[in-house]
Amino acid sequence: MMQSILMALAGGALIGVAASLMLLFNGRVTGISGITNGLLSYVKGDYLWRFAFVLGLILGGVVLGATHPEMFVNTTNRTSVMVAIAGVIVGFGTVLGSGCTSGHGVCGISRLSPRSLIATGVFMVVGMLAATVLKFVIGA
């Protein structure tokens, strides 16, 4: 448990560094759902950086997957159908709500944005309620 906590802290600090570089260099919030959603429509001058960011996020996964496969093991009981439904709901919800864990949870809270404080409170509470109820419905 202690090692999990230290890894979470270290990884979190690295996420904070990444978001800070985005702010310092490009003057932008590192909101992953928003950046990804922007890939669905081409706006001149506002596209290539989004593509590059998402490419970096995915290529990082390619490298980590090759060197540390244990980081990507999924031992949950979620079926492919459940994951697909979750994907649709997350895609729809994060764009409707203007952000996810990165844009609201990290960047927004860091600057005490009232919208992000509310959004993070809502997705944490609903996520906890849903996961806790699902434990009884589908067993884990």
Binding site: M82, A86, V90, G93
Partner: peptide, 15 residues
Amino acid sequence: GSALFGFGWALGGFC
């Protein structure tokens, strides 16, 4: 939107 996201996050385990 945030409530939907919270539900989807718990259902799939991914953000």
